[in-house]
Design a protein around this nucleic acid. Structure first.
Lengths: 196, 196
DNA sequence: CCTACCGATCGGTAGG
DNA sequence: CCTACCGATCGGTAGG
């Protein structure tokens, strides 16, 4: 279960990555300098290199963590035997939760991944493509079982992912996390649309 | 009518902005240097400054053009007396068309606006907020007239705009522009959802 | 963890 | 439209 974790010692590299995520989100990967990150940690820039190899490694830590979280969740969802509509709903809700709880990491992964070094960029794109393909599979299966309308599964998945990725105003609703009416409203909108 | 225009001489600044838009999209605003832009135009970087004030002006030209196009279209849509569902559909189709025909400009406006100078950034955000508010008004009116389901108009609008903004894979479908099945599929998805 | 420092690159100007 | 050049800032290293 991804929710129950043995708390382990947070490495200094991870502490740096947390601060870097905040600054990368606010200013962008290239615009946030190593000196900015060092300042935020009250150390000098060269000291960072005792804990990390280079700037790109910070971006890698962030993007990999996010990809892993989504991968873990998807695996859990796939293994449960539920209607595909329920699976899709759970995935949508997970995306929303990630936006609330892990905003900086998710935002950086969503908007700064192009700055990954070539090899990691490739891995990232492959993993993302794989994730999409597995969602498409759920939609295809749902259409077959007449849970969903007949539509182009790829378009459906990309539209939903696109909507979820862009919904950065989640943040404002953090306080309302409890009553979940906001989350429910998005889920409803994505699953059943707006038209009568 | 926004579609019929008297063809006027394209200024050198606009030619530069076109090339800048391509590079800003590919590399990002800060990552695409004035030297990159100059190279692409087969001139030296300092020569650019005979036609534009500075780098930021290029970004302004791009973002303002996009904002103006959407503003023009929205005004046209608002003035027609049609069901709100039809209005919303027209707006969605316009966003998709912009993605196809004006990809670089739209992409830069969507992803690089944070690099606008403070004053222009403010104007940009105000204009965007205004645009959203007018869409919300259409949805509100549609709910009143029972064209739409009862839902939170703001969430509906932001979800739709978010989906449209992120759908960058439009590009791949440029060839299929004619049969419009792709466009229709997105419209259907956004208006009526996926669930049966 | 620090000071001192490097080569590269940036946006932009001077002056023609 | 060019050459020559500037100050600022960057990621990162040397050496302790």
């Amino acid at each position: 279960m991804s929710k129950i974790k043995t708390t382990r010692k947070t490495s200094t590299a991870e502490v740096i990555a947390e601060k870097a995520a905040l600054l990368f989100r606010q200013k962008g990967y290239n615009e946030a300098s190593m000196r900015n990150i060092a300042d935020a940690l009250n150390i000098e820039a060269p000291s960072l290199y005792n804990h990390i190899k280079n700037k790109a490694e910070l971006l890698q830590i962030i993007c990999k963590k996010v990809a892993q979280d989504f991968e873990d969740n998807l695996l859990e969802v796939e293994q449960d035997s539920q209607p595909n509509s329920k699976k899709l709903e759970r995935i949508i809700r997970f995306h929303i939760k990630m936006s609330m709880r892990n905003f900086d990491f998710l935002h950086v992964s969503n908007h700064q991944w192009k700055s990954l070094p070539p090899d990691e960029l490739n891995q990232f794109l492959i993993a993302r493509k794989k994730y999409e393909t597995r969602l498409v599979q759920i939609v295809k299966d749902g259409i077959l079982k007449k849970e969903f309308k007949i539509l182009q599964p790829q378009v459906a998945v990309l539209t939903i992912l696109s909507a979820l990725r862009g919904l950065e105003f989640y943040q404002k609703y953090k306080k309302h996390t409890r009553d979940r009416s906001f989350e429910n409203s998005i889920v409803k909108q994505l699953l059943t649309g707006i038209a009568k």
